[in-house]
């Protein structure tokens, strides 16, 4: 039985699905500053959540980023600048150039993206398919991805965050 099928069965249990979402939500909040949009694209965006962007840009940066800072609040980094950096480190620029993210399904806001994925509610390819490249041994790929996630997470905790109010910059 595939992982998808096992999970699908498990998600039918209410308690399991609640507990799973609790863990998923908290983990993703800490690691990625996830906004629980329920339409997860983290595996296509170098493990940086694009929904942090004040304009909810899911297909690339707006025209305002300057010196890597967001036009809306220059004390914060442009999310897409981070995504570009992170995908470069993962050698996965192809994800940003060939990928088109469809409009999000806002009914799924605040629900578990894994459950939605397993239940086939998302149109984008499964996380399992896009997480790792096929042409490299997993033993090399997995540590790189994990290291990159932790690195992003460290930047998130130490750097200016969209989650903290850090005053308004002068216009």
């Amino acid at each position: 039985m595939s992982v998808d099928a096992i999970l699908e069965r498990a998600f039918q249990n209410r308690i399991f699905s609640q507990a799973f979402f609790l863990v998923e939500r908290k983990m993703k909040e800490w690691l990625f500053d996830c906004q629980s949009c329920g339409n997860c694209v983290l595996s296509h965006t170098g493990f940086i959540c694009p929904m942090r962007c004040p304009k909810s840009q899911r297909n690339g940066p707006c025209g305002g980023a300057m010196d890597g800072h967001c036009e809306v609040d220059i004390s914060k980094r442009c999310v897409w600048d981070e995504i570009w950096e992170s995908t470069n480190r993962l050698h996965r620029i192809d994800l940003l150039t060939n990928n088109y993210e469809g409009p999000p399904d806002w009914r799924l806001y605040g629900t578990s993206a894994w459950e939605n994925m397993v239940a086939g509610r998302l149109e984008s390819p499964s996380i399992f398919e896009t997480l790792f490249r096929k042409d490299e041994p997993l033993l090399r790929e997995v540590p790189r991805v994990v290291f990159q996630i932790l690195r992003n997470c460290y930047n998130l905790i130490t750097g200016p965050s969209w989650r903290r109010y850090e005053g308004r910059p002068p216009l």
């Binding site: 690339g60 940066p61 707006c62 025209g63 305002g64 980023a65 300057m66 010196d67 890597g68 442009c78 897409w80 600048d81 570009w84 950096e85 940003l96």
Partner: peptide
């Protein structure tokens, strides 16, 4: 053409 990231 001028905004960051330029290569993207």
């Amino acid at each position: 053409p001028f905004a960051d990231p330029f290569e993207y």
